[in-house]
């Protein structure tokens, strides 16, 4: 075991002294939180839209459209969004990365919320209506509480996909804006540097924390609903 000189926190200090790195960490977290929040809202709207279609055919059409982004390789999503942003004159950077992350997260949220909506009995809504609830009240007091586990699952999936994404971000990031995955990639390509190891460890711990939080939250909401289905 030669060369092992004991534990050191030196390189973690380096990570925090590296101002550029701190900004990148901040970028990554802000993008992840914003994109997963927005895509959760959009995804719930999408799932409700799919539920309310009248014919089986239009429902299947919507579902397969939804699946296009799920099966598409990241390279295609990245390249096509790059083309669109350039044509629309959106400067590559924060906005383009945020929009792309929302784009690939929405279908995931839809898929997580949809089964919960299908589980919900329509008589529940009829009952609320008979009791005089308005459309908004039905949504906020009956539907949303019922599909809450699905919404949480969707939000966390979106969060981890956003934190994890490399390929799509790499295409639409431009100069000057970077997220952790892109930064690790470019540093790893230049040869392995010291700070990556410390950085990797930090992300690893961060991911573990999120996973833990997800399971705790999931457990709690599952318990409250009396359905012990751990997902």
């Amino acid at each position: 075991m030669h060369g092992f000189e004991g534990f050191t926190l030196e390189y973690y200090g380096e990570v925090f002294r590296d101002g550029r790195l701190l900004i990148i960490v901040l970028n990554t977290v802000v993008i992840a939180l914003l994109s997963s929040t927005i895509s959760t809202i959009l995804g719930v709207v999408g799932a409700l839209a799919i539920m309310r279609t009248r014919t089986r055919r239009s429902r299947n059409a919507l579902l397969s459209m939804n699946n296009v982004l799920i099966v598409s390789p990241d390279v295609i999503i990245g390249a096509s969004l790059l083309v669109m942003f350039t044509m629309a004159g959106i400067r590559l950077g924060f906005t383009s990365v945020l929009l792309s992350h929302i784009a690939f997260s929405v279908p995931i949220v839809v898929l997580m919320v949809l089964p919960k909506l299908q589980e919900m009995s329509p008589t529940l809504i009829d009952a609320a209506r008979d009791l005089g609830a308005s459309g908004w009240q039905v949504l906020s007091r009956v539907v949303v509480p019922f599909i809450k586990p699905g919404i949480f699952a969707g939000f966390f999936m979106a969060l981890t996909y956003s934190l994890d994404d490399f390929a799509v971000t790499f295409f639409v990031t431009g100069n000057g804006f970077s997220t952790l995955s892109v930064e690790i990639y470019s540093r790893a390509r230049q040869g392995v540097s010291l700070s990556i190891n410390a950085l990797s460890a930090l992300i690893f711990l961060f991911t573990l924390l999120i996973v833990l939080g997800y399971y705790v939250l999931n457990r709690r909401s599952a318990k409250r609903l009396g359905t012990g289905v751990p997902r």
Binding site: F166, L180, S181, I184, Y185, I196, S200, I203, F204
Partner: peptide
């Protein structure tokens, strides 16, 4: 776990 970390 972040894909890049595993590859790294």
């Amino acid at each position: 776990v972040n894909l890049l970390l595993k590859v790294y």
